[in-house]
Lab assay of single mutants.
Amino acid sequence: NKFNKEMRNAYWEILLLPNLNEQQKRAFIRSLYDDPSQSANLLAEAKKLNDAQA
Rank of each mutant, 00 (worst) to 15 (best):
N1L: 02
N1Q: 04
N1Y: 00
N1A: 01
N1D: 15
N1W: 00
N1S: 02
K2L: 06
K2N: 15
K2E: 15
K2Q: 15
K2H: 15
K2T: 12
K2F: 12
K2G: 15
F3S: 15
F3I: 15
F3R: 15
F3A: 15
F3M: 15
F3W: 03
F3H: 15
F3T: 15
N4Q: 09
N4T: 09
N4W: 15
N4H: 13
N4D: 15
N4P: 15
N4L: 14
K5P: 04
K5T: 01
K5N: 02
K5W: 01
K5S: 01
K5G: 02
K5E: 15
E6A: 04
E6D: 07
E6H: 03
E6M: 03
E6R: 01
E6V: 02
E6K: 02
M7A: 15
M7Y: 02
M7N: 01
M7Q: 12
M7V: 13
M7D: 02
M7P: 00
R8V: 08
R8D: 04
R8K: 07
R8M: 15
N9Y: 15
N9E: 14
N9D: 12
N9S: 05
N9I: 14
N9V: 14
A10D: 01
A10W: 01
A10N: 02
Y11F: 08
Y11R: 06
Y11E: 11
Y11L: 09
Y11W: 07
Y11P: 00
W12S: 04
W12D: 04
W12R: 12
W12G: 05
W12L: 02
W12P: 00
E13Q: 13
E13F: 11
I14K: 00
I14Q: 00
I14G: 01
I14D: 00
I14P: 00
I14H: 00
I14E: 00
I14F: 02
L15M: 06
L15D: 02
L15E: 02
L15Y: 04
L15T: 06
L15I: 06
L15W: 02
L16D: 08
L16V: 06
L16T: 06
L16F: 13
L16A: 11
L17V: 02
L17H: 15
L17I: 03
L17Y: 05
L17E: 02
L17W: 04
L17N: 03
P18M: 05
P18N: 08
P18F: 03
P18R: 09
P18H: 11
P18Q: 03
P18E: 07
N19V: 06
N19F: 11
N19H: 14
N19S: 10
N19A: 12
N19Q: 10
N19Y: 11
N19G: 09
L20M: 06
L20W: 00
L20N: 00
L20Q: 00
L20H: 00
N21P: 06
N21R: 12
N21F: 13
N21Q: 14
N21M: 14
N21G: 13
E22D: 10
E22Q: 11
E22N: 13
E22L: 04
E22F: 13
Q23G: 10
Q23D: 10
Q23W: 12
Q23I: 08
Q24K: 06
Q24T: 05
Q24N: 09
Q24R: 05
Q24L: 07
Q24E: 11
K25Y: 03
K25V: 07
K25L: 05
K25R: 11
K25I: 07
R26W: 08
R26A: 04
R26G: 09
R26N: 05
R26Y: 14
R26D: 05
R26Q: 07
A27H: 09
A27I: 10
A27F: 11
A27M: 08
A27Q: 12
F28P: 00
F28S: 07
F28L: 12
F28V: 06
F28A: 11
F28D: 00
F28R: 04
F28Q: 03
F28K: 04
I29A: 04
I29K: 02
I29D: 00
I29H: 06
I29Y: 04
R30I: 09
R30Y: 13
R30K: 13
R30P: 01
R30M: 05
R30G: 07
R30F: 07
S31M: 12
S31H: 09
S31K: 09
S31W: 08
S31I: 04
S31F: 10
S31D: 13
L32G: 01
L32I: 04
L32E: 00
L32R: 00
L32Y: 00
L32F: 03
Y33T: 04
Y33P: 02
Y33S: 01
Y33F: 14
Y33L: 15
Y33M: 09
D34I: 14
D34M: 13
D34F: 09
D34K: 12
D35T: 11
D35K: 13
D35L: 06
P36R: 04
P36A: 06
P36F: 05
P36N: 06
S37P: 05
S37F: 06
S37M: 13
S37V: 06
S37Q: 11
Q38V: 04
Q38P: 02
S39T: 07
S39I: 14
S39P: 13
S39F: 13
S39G: 03
S39H: 14
S39K: 11
S39V: 13
A40I: 14
A40T: 06
A40S: 13
A40M: 11
A40Y: 05
A40E: 07
A40R: 09
A40Q: 10
N41K: 13
N41F: 14
N41W: 07
L42R: 08
L42Q: 05
L42I: 07
L42W: 09
L43Q: 10
L43T: 12
L43N: 05
L43E: 06
L43K: 12
L43W: 04
L43S: 14
L43V: 07
L43G: 05
A44P: 03
A44L: 11
A44W: 08
E45F: 05
E45A: 10
E45S: 08
E45R: 12
E45Y: 08
A46K: 00
A46H: 00
A46F: 01
A46N: 00
A46T: 02
A46M: 01
A46R: 00
A46G: 05
A46W: 01
A46Q: 00
K47I: 06
K47M: 04
K47W: 05
K47A: 04
K47E: 03
K47D: 03
K47R: 10
K48L: 11
K48T: 08
K48P: 01
K48N: 12
K48D: 08
K48M: 12
K48Y: 10
L49A: 14
L49G: 04
L49I: 08
L49E: 06
L49R: 06
N50L: 01
N50I: 03
N50E: 05
N50F: 01
N50M: 03
N50H: 14
D51Y: 09
D51L: 07
D51A: 06
D51H: 15
A52T: 12
A52G: 07
A52H: 07
A52Y: 11
A52K: 10
A52M: 11
A52S: 08
A52I: 08
Q53G: 12
Q53W: 11
Q53H: 13
Q53M: 09
A54M: 12
A54P: 08
A54K: 09
A54L: 04
A54W: 05
A54D: 14
A54V: 13
A54Q: 09
A54Y: 04
A54F: 06
A54H: 12
